[in-house]
Design a protein around this nucleic acid. Structure first.
Lengths: 219, 219
DNA sequence: CACTTATCGATACTATAATATCGATAGAGA
DNA sequence: TCTCTATCGATATTATAGTATCGATAAGTG
């Protein structure tokens, strides 16, 4: 860690709040504001005031000033830097089913520093063409292309049955972080990160809440 | 709480693990197995043994037996019950852009007890027809349809700028739980649950991990 | 029928994250 | 200039979740 750098330990939860902060702060900047105080951010985003202050302090190089707050542009810069919104990461996607297509077509990743450069699929009928401007290759090309293009992020949008095999191939191809949309656990070496986007898990929370609410009413 | 019922307090995290358990246990059941021990589950899903035992114990009515484990079918039933996989919840979706379409076309929700019955959009050009067999109505019909069909779950797949307004309409229409795919905070009354599916938040974890890994290598 | 052992439940401990509290300080207003 | 107060940073407390440990018990084995 270089002298003057912030400690590199930012909690998982805090990291996940960053995109919300960034979005909000960008809005303020556009409206010409220069500084913002933690309580104001907290109120807007429905968070605790102290939590926000800590998060902002962790990202800001300078100190927040009592009565006025933190410098907006600095916060934005530091957060974007921490999340790599500036120097875009290239990624490839495996599995061009309906979800895969949707992700390929989604334009919002660019502003988060993610750049989908290509897709892969095991079905020969789906390869060879383009989807949303991204070329679709057969699985046999995976390793070669990943290595040559120095790809470090892989997105898995294949059925559960194929997920682990695809995962292994990605790791073999040098991918360091995997974004997994298949609703299953993936086993990887300890230095590889798997971030699972399990819709069913979120749904579980919704359903359970609903069940409790309805039970209360009927009681 | 009725006599004999399990305590209704299941931690958020545990709830989110349920779908993984269910999926794994169903597989065992199909292969004819009757009982399963916590350590075996833990190994398969990459979880801690004690954690799994606690989770299973929380869901099972009977006790797990030393040396053999828990009764599979009972676990499945209890979990499905807790998450409402059996008595399906009806839901409506607002915003039929690319993500909305993808979700409407995704068949996997049925087995999680979610039943998308209709979609809505503000753009008149998109309403009137069907998408993946689901009718698309104009926003003006929202409240009427939700009330008549007794809808309690709303899915938001509109741009950020429209999200809060749509959210308010949903609450007004009697929705109790909201599944939010717009990358923004939604303000709701305290008894309404918002589950946000923020891709940017997940990406934040991936990017950060990657940045650290690459820094380590280059050091 | 003893002996061994995998697994259980319960309890204790640890880690992580969220929140409350308090003295210090910058800026607004008398 | 002096006072008042919103906000800050730091520290302490609490809440939640995860992990380790240990005696008890059921099933297999000699």
């Amino acid at each position: 860690m270089r002298e003057g750098d912030k400690p590199t330990v930012i909690s998982k939860q805090a990291l996940q709040r960053m995109p919300y902060y960034i979005r909000f702060l960008r809005g303020l900047k556009e409206r010409g504001m220069k500084v913002i105080a933690a309580p104001a951010v907290a109120a807007q985003l429905g968070l605790n005031e102290v939590q926000v202050r800590k998060d902002l302090a962790a990202m800001s190089n300078s100190h927040g000033k009592p009565k006025s707050g933190f410098i907006i542009v600095e916060l934005i810069e530091n957060m974007e830097d921490a999340l790599g919104y500036n120097n875009s990461d290239d990624a490839i996607l495996v599995g061009v089913g309906s979800l895969g297509r949707a992700l390929l077509g989604y334009g919002g990743f660019a502003e988060c520093g993610l750049n989908m450069v290509a897709a892969f699929d095991a079905d020969p009928a789906l390869t060879g063409g383009n989807i949303s401007g991204k070329p679709v290759f057969p699985m046999s090309k995976l390793k070669d292309i990943c290595c040559r293009m120095n790809i470090h992020i892989g997105v898995i949008t294949v059925p559960v049955a194929a997920a682990q095999a695809v995962c292994d191939e990605l790791v073999e191809a040098g991918v360091l972080a995997i974004w997994n949309f298949a609703p299953t656990h993936l086993t990887v070496p300890p230095d590889i990160l798997v971030q699972s986007e399990n819709m069913a898990a979120s749904l579980a929370l919704l359903s359970n809440h609903l069940r409790q609410r309805l039970r209360e009413e009927n009681l």
